[in-house]
Each structure stands twice: as structure tokens, then as C-alpha cells.
Design a protein around this nucleic acid. Structure first.
Lengths: 216, 216
DNA sequence: TAAGTAACGAACTAGCTAGTTAATAGTAGG
DNA sequence: CCTACTATTAACTAGCTAGTTCGTTACTTA
């Protein structure tokens, strides 16, 4: 009888990886939804198929669990970012592509952005402690730096801004659109994430960055 | 004896307005600092010269106090915004001026921005309940709308964006710079609010908006 | 100056919340 | 098949936290 006892259906299979992963997934949702102080360890436990004790068994405490969720969210985004190849494109095309990639990432990962907002409210005190932090800057900036250099050398791009400035400009637009959509909607009655306006904003972002970078 | 008894020095002068205002001021700091769930009513009380009972006396509860702080913060910003007169300026100059005004406001009112971030984490559930909400859109957008119209009519500005789009673009940049400065600093080792870089970013914002709006 | 009202304070409480204890059940190695 | 270890559970606890009770003191007004 090598097969696991599954005849009663209710037998609990042990699987450390699965349990750990499930806790992390639920914790990410809960922290992103309620913030660090607003999230409840009991609530996270209740939403898993395991118990609160397991959270402490695998993660030691609420703060470490939060940091694990934050690090995991950054890892996911970083993994996506590294799959970009713009060397074959003209600098202007490459910039638009990178901007649109950021635009798409942010739109499809709201939990990540919420965790970033929350972490900023906490003045990045947890992220600063993270051992994963070095290397988080990652490929995004290096890739951007390469494209900017090419554009400058060919005389197309202005030379008074660096990769971080441009990265900041792109992020601003994308982060605001999703992170501040609720107060914006409440005040101006416009849903920045309305699918009908998606293409408009995507094009607007690309135009904004390129019009700014381009020498006339 | 019309003068208040002040001979012992420790006599408590009664002043409803002052007490209320003090609670609101401390509450604003506390909520902006710790978030709604992270803020402690006891802590707010301890930091005032009055007691917790007075918080409930004047504001009924934690949530109403938070909303009062949020509304008050918006009122302050709105008051500043309405003191702008750009009709005498060329459209391009006016746009730059409005952008720089937003830039300056955001930099000098960090508590306001933190409250906005916090309120977005809560999906604007409190702001939506506010009776002060209508009229919050305020003059900022109307002024911007007038300038854009003038710019379009003279053929200087593109015509595929409206005032809310431009407002969003300006806000994005200013909000990101202050609201996301902590994670940005942690990851990229650049302080977006470093005074040495202030002029650079201020000019960059104006260029960004104008290069985007201008027909070439 | 008496009575009423607005402003205030100290101490209390019910319920919540992060973290713990102690005992149990599945699993892998010998 | 037995021993040691890993994974798991349920019940518990100490301390915190929003909100309350009840009584007191200053100010107002008739």
C-alpha cells in the first residue's frame, strides 16, 4: 500500500511545502487587503486549511510573515521583469515597450502594489530589514540604462536625466493609476482602471515618456 | 474678578474649540503616522492635554475622528489651491505654474499625502461617506480646464486629453515622489526628497507635462 | 445666587489579539 | 516494526484596546 490513505477522504495528508505556501498566499491577500496592523493572524489562519499554530511554526510571528509576503511579492514581479529583451528595438520603441510592460504589470498585480503602499506607510522599515533587498533594484534599471545610453548616443534623447529618473516617471504614472484609484474615483467620479480607458492611458504613458525624452 | 483664576498656575481653562482642535491635530498626526488600524485612541489621548473621554465627547468614536482628520486635511489643501490665478499667464506658463504648485503642496504637506494613501488602502470607504466630498474636486480641475482650452484654441496643445488626465499626470509625479519615497530609497538608494535634487525634479515635472501637451 | 448645562477626568470593562503550551498523529530511517 | 523527528491540533493566556460609567467642576443665565 504505497498510495496515501485516501479512502475516507478526510485523512490529512502532511505536506510542509503546501502548508507553508498556503499560509503565505492567504497572508499576502490579507495583508494587502487590511494593512499590517489591520490584518489578523486569526483571520489568516481561519482562511487556510490549517491552524494558527502553523503560522508560528513556519513563520515565527506576524511581522516575519508580513516580511515573507512582501519579499515573495517582490520576487514575483522581479521574475516577470527579467524576461524582457529590448536590445533588438530602436531606443524609442524600447522605451515605449518598457513603459507598457510596467503599465501591464501594475494593472495585473494589485496586491503587490497595495503591499508597496502599506510598506511606505511604515516607512519601509520591514523592507530595510530584508536580506533579499540587495538585488531587488534588479534588471529593470539596467535595461533602461542601456536603452537611454543608446538613445543619447544617437542624439535622439535628452541627456539631463538618468535611468532612475525615467524609471520613477514611469512608475509614478502606473502606481498612481492603480494605488490612488479609490480616492480619485471618489473625488472626480472617474475610474482610472475602467477598461474603456485602458488603451488611452497606456498610449498616454508612452507619449508622455517619449515626448519628454525626445530632443525636438 | 473677571480674570480667570490663574494664581495657582495649574487651573484648567475651559475652551471647547481649543480642546477639539488639539484632539484633531494630534489625531491627524497619529493616523497619518500609523494608519487607521495602527493608530491608538489611548495614544492620541495621551498626546493631548485632555483625556480619552473628550475624544468620545467631541468625535463619538475612532472612525468619526479619522474621518474628521481626513476631511480637515482635504480642506487645508483645498484652501491653498483656490488661491491661484493663472488667467494672466500664457497657457504653457500657466501649466508649469500649476504643476509646480502641486509639487510644492505635496512636498510641504506629507501628512495629507499619507492620509490619502491610507484612505486608498481602505478603498476610500470613509471618504465616500463624507458629506464634505461633493465640492472636493474643487477649483484645481476647473482652473486646469480653462488653461487647457486656451492652449487648444491657440493650437499649442494637443486635444486628445482632458483636464482630469492632466491633473492625474501631475499628481502621479508629485504623489509618487513623496508617498513612495521610502521603498524607492530602500531599493535604489536615492532619496527623492533630497533638497539637492528638488529643483531637478521640479523642472522635470514641468518639462514632462509641457512636452507632452505641446504640439510639435 | 441658584440652577442648569457644557466641559472634563479617573477608573472600569468586555471583547479581542498575538503568541504559547502541551499533547498527538503521520513519516522516514534503521 | 520501532524509534526519532516533523507536522499538526485544540485550548489557553496575558496584555491590549475601543468604548463606557459615573461623578465632578467650571461657566452661563435667569
Amino acid at each position: 500500500m504505497a498510495a496515501p490513505t485516501s479512502d475516507t477522504g478526510a485523512i490529512k495528508q502532511r505536506d510542509a511545502d503546501r502548508t507553508r505556501a498556503e499560509i503565505l498566499r492567504v497572508a499576502t491577500e490579507e495583508f494587502a487587503d487590511k494593512g499590517y496592523a489591520g490584518a489578523r493572524v486569526d483571520e489568516i489562519a481561519a482562511r487556510t486549511s490549517t491552524t494558527k499554530r502553523m503560522i508560528y511554526y513556519y513563520f515565527s510571528g506576524k511581522e516575519q510573515l508580513y516580511l515573507a509576503a512582501l519579499e515573495n511579492a517582490y520576487s514575483v514581479i522581479r521574475g516577470l521583469e527579467s524576461q524582457v529583451d529590448v536590445d533588438a528595438l530602436e531606443p524609442a520603441e524600447a522605451i515605449r515597450k518598457l513603459a507598457e510592460l510596467t503599465f501591464d504589470h501594475h494593472e495585473s498585480h494589485p496586491d503587490f502594489l497595495r503591499l508597496v503602499s502599506i510598506e511606505n506607510i511604515h516607512r519601509a522599515e520591514h523592507l530595510t530589514k530584508s536580506e533579499l533587498l540587495p538585488g531587488l533594484a534588479g534588471p529593470a534599471v539596467e535595461v533602461l540604462d542601456g536603452v537611454l545610453r543608446r538613445g543619447r548616443e544617437s542624439g535622439q534623447f535628452r541627456d539631463d536625466v538618468d535611468a532612475l529618473d525615467v524609471h520613477m516617471m514611469i512608475s509614478s504614472f502606473c502606481v498612481f493609476r492603480t494605488a490612488n484609484r479609490y480616492t480619485f474615483q471618489a473625488i472626480f467620479q472617474r475610474d482610472l482602471l475602467d477598461p474603456k480607458r485602458r488603451d488611452h492611458y497606456r498610449r498616454m504613458l508612452g507619449d508622455m515618456v517619449l515626448d519628454f525624452l525626445s530632443r525636438d
